[in-house]
Structure formats: C-alpha cells, structure tokens
C-alpha cells in the first residue's frame, strides 16, 4: 500500500505549494461520516470490501486511476497536469496480467499488443497526425481503457440489477445490466459507442461482457482503445473482470477479443482507488470545443 512517511512528505510539500490557492477551495470535500476510519480519523483504504444488502461486493463510489505496474517501468498514469505527482501505486503482482498504461494499452506487455497488420497500420496513421482524431479531442466517448484511466474521476452507482458508471470526462456514461439478460446478438440493437454490457457474479468478481460496439470502421473517432489509438473493430468483444479487494482498491482486468485488430486475445489490468469525499464536477465538453478549428483542420 502507501508508504506513509513518503505520502506525508508529499502531502506537506504539495500542501505548502498549493495552500495559497486552496485556502478557499472551490470544490470542498464532503466526507461521508460512515467511512471506515482508524483511531486518528484517517480513512482506512485497507478496510474490508463494502457489501450490498444481498452480500455482493459494492463498487459504488468515486474512483480515480491508480496503478500497480512494475516499478520504474511503464507508468499507468501520466498527466500530473503541470505538477509532478506520482499516481498512487498498489502492490505489483507479477503473476497478474500486464498493467495497461494510459497512453498504451500494451505499455507493460512484452512486445506490445499483438496487432494485426491492418491494426498496426491504422494505429501508425493515427499517431502520424499526433492522435488528433482521438475521440476525447472531439468530446466524444472514449474507449474503455482510456475512460478507465482518465485523470478525471468516475462515479459508480450499483443497484441489484444494474451498474451505472458516470465519467466526469466528457460526461461519459455506461450501463451494465446485472439482471441476468444475455448479450444481444451482434448488430441487434444498433451498435453504440459504449456497446452493450451485461454482468454476472463469479464469487466476488463481477464479469462484464460487452459487444455491439461501434468500431474503427465507423469513423475516424471510433474504435480508439487508448490514447495512442490502439484500434478495435465492430466485432470486438470485451470482458472485464472487476474486483474490489479492499475498501480503497478497484481492480479491472480487461480482455479484448477482436480477430480483425489482434492476432490473439489479450488481457491487461487497470487499478483505481477510491476518492473519499469527492463528488463529480459538471464538465460539458462541447460548450466551446474549437480544437480542430485552432489546428486548422476544419
């Protein structure tokens, strides 16, 4: 977990640097009095997994990205926004799947992702223009890995029959049905940006399967799995195995099956940590989007 002396040093350093502007914080924390705390009042990130009334792990909460990648190799985060803040680390599990990085789904995978020649070409073309067609730049929904690792937080709301994930980034929203319905056939309903997701419990792991995604065939902003444009196609099928091993830790193992874009299925891991007291802030991305006009491509 966290090394407290290091965290404290970081906290003091940053606090001193920013206290001048944080005295009148513009978005105050609102901590739930029911949070698990130690004797000193600190929220216990290693407290037991919260559970729903029917005994399932409860993923509800506001989460930010974290990482558990191998030390000093690929970074899961990136993007301190002008402040060099390390993303919080959970212990590295060398037996687990490679940890995705924000820019590169295969950033910690030996040899990188198993692209087909078609996918490798497409990704190269996307990068050749500085990834300017990334859906994020157009205020459009991002691929799951980019959403899972976005620096902006996301809120999970879990009921007995569904999970809602609201992403602060671009006001994204995902529905995952838990009522036992099967995945619909491909093409029915019409494929969506977020696809069609159903989840089932395997012990304390929620297994979420998604199909009916719009893919890279649908347009320049479609089928971007990560920031650098690793593609997925209309035939993609995603399986997310989601666990909450402790109060503070959410772990998502994503498997991608997409024979048009990848020569074999592959799996990567994403970690998130709870943000006690935080709420999402409205972010209406399209309010004044002028990126493409500014770089003179529209």
């Amino acid at each position: 977990m966290i090394e407290w002396p290091a965290l404290l040093k970081l906290a003091v350093g940053i606090g001193v640097a920013l206290s001048v502007v944080n005295v009148n914080a513009q978005w105050p924390l609102r901590e739930d009095p029911g949070l698990p705390r130690d004797a000193k009042g600190t929220v216990r990130m290693d407290a037991p997994t919260p559970r729903t009334a029917d005994g399932k792990p409860d993923f509800s909460g506001v989460w930010m990205r974290a990482e558990s990648g191998p030390p000093k190799e690929g970074r899961g985060g990136g993007g301190g926004g002008g402040i060099d803040i390390p993303v919080e680390r959970f212990p590295y599990d060398p037996k687990g799947p490679p940890v995705a990085t924000f820019f590169e789904a295969g950033g910690n995978m030996a040899g990188g992702l198993p692209y087909t020649p078609w996918a490798a070409e497409l990704r190269k073309a996307r990068l050749a223009v500085n990834a300017r067609d990334n859906p994020d730049a157009m205020c459009l929904p991002m691929g799951f890995l980019q959403f899972h690792q976005q620096p902006q937080p996301r809120m999970i709301v879990q009921t007995r029959t569904m999970i809602l994930i609201e992403y602060e980034a671009n006001s994204g929203i995902r529905h995952i049905y838990l009522d036992g319905r099967p995945l619909p056939p491909q093409g029915e309903p019409q494929p969506w940006w977020y696809g069609y997701s159903v989840g089932r419990w395997e012990g304390d792991t929620l297994v979420v399967e998604t199909n009916n995604l719009r893919g890279a065939e649908d347009g320049p902003h479609d089928g971007w799995l990560d920031v650098n444009g690793s593609p997925y196609t209309r035939q993609a099928r995603f399986t997310e195995r989601i666990r909450r091993p402790t109060f503070g830790h959410l772990q998502i193992d994503l498997t991608v099956e997409d024979a048009k874009a990848y020569t074999k299925p592959w799996t990567v891991r994403v970690d998130q940590r709870i943000l006690p007291g935080h709420e999402l802030i409205e972010a209406i991305c399209n309010e004044n989007q002028q990126f493409r006009q500014r770089i003179k491509i529209d």
């Binding site: 606090g15 206290s19 300017r132 007291g277």
Partner: peptide, 23 residues
C-alpha cells in the same frame, strides 16, 4: 488539515483533453 486537503486535491490529476502535440 489545509495541508492535507491540498494534497488530496492536488493528487486528483488534471485534464487530458485534446492532443497537446497537435497544437
């Protein structure tokens, strides 16, 4: 508390939006 609040706020990283290097 202010110092800690500063740290908590600061470690919520900021915004990746458009492609920086395109612009």
């Amino acid at each position: 508390v202010t110092v800690l609040a500063g740290a908590v706020m600061a470690v919520v990283p900021v915004i990746a939006h458009h492609s920086f290097s395109a612009e």
